[in-house]
Amino acid sequence: MNEIKNSPLGDRGKKIHPHKFAMWVALASIVMMFAGLTSAFIVKSSQAGWQDIETPSLFIYSTLVIIISSVTVQMAVRAHKQREKMSKYRLYITITAFLGALFVALQFFGFSNLWTQGITFRSSISGSFLYVIIGLHALHVIGGVAALLVTFFRAFSRRERVYSSVGIEIVATYWHFVDLLWIYLVLFFTLIK
């Protein structure tokens, strides 16, 4: 008991914060959802009547955008941990949220290109898979943007000062996850043909 009281972090120096851990479990469950969808894609693609489609070239830009946003969110975490740089922290969060919104917008334009090329829900199974899987991923990014906005307003709130970096670290973990998930999806759609 005494040693715990003496160390500033207590037991937490060794143990992961429960909220962070809960986020990792949630990520595992999101992985299972996309594993279900992409394995359904593989099963379907081996069946008769399957036609491959080209993924929109705009997705290269959206990939770049989301990778950069992963860097900025990490810089926000670093700025938050070094207390004196709170203005930088706010800046990085703003940039990340903006990049997240830009990513979703790029996905949307990529899809409208596809749609105008005649790849609709009715016309192609592989197209509908693309819409569903990438659409669900975009929803997860939007969720991340919402979480970033909450952190953003908490950073500016005068009523409540947040000194714990757990919140932003959890958001950052999630953000890296949707980034990695997107890279996986891009590779998946390029390689499974």
Partner: peptide
């Protein structure tokens, strides 16, 4: 639960698309 329920969710989403948006999953 955490590892299996999301798969049912994907199945249900595809079914909703088939019902309302004309997809052929």
């Amino acid at each position: 639960g955490v590892l299996s329920f999301p798969v049912l969710l994907s199945g249900a989403i595809l079914l909703l698309f088939d019902r309302h948006l004309g997809t052929s999953f």
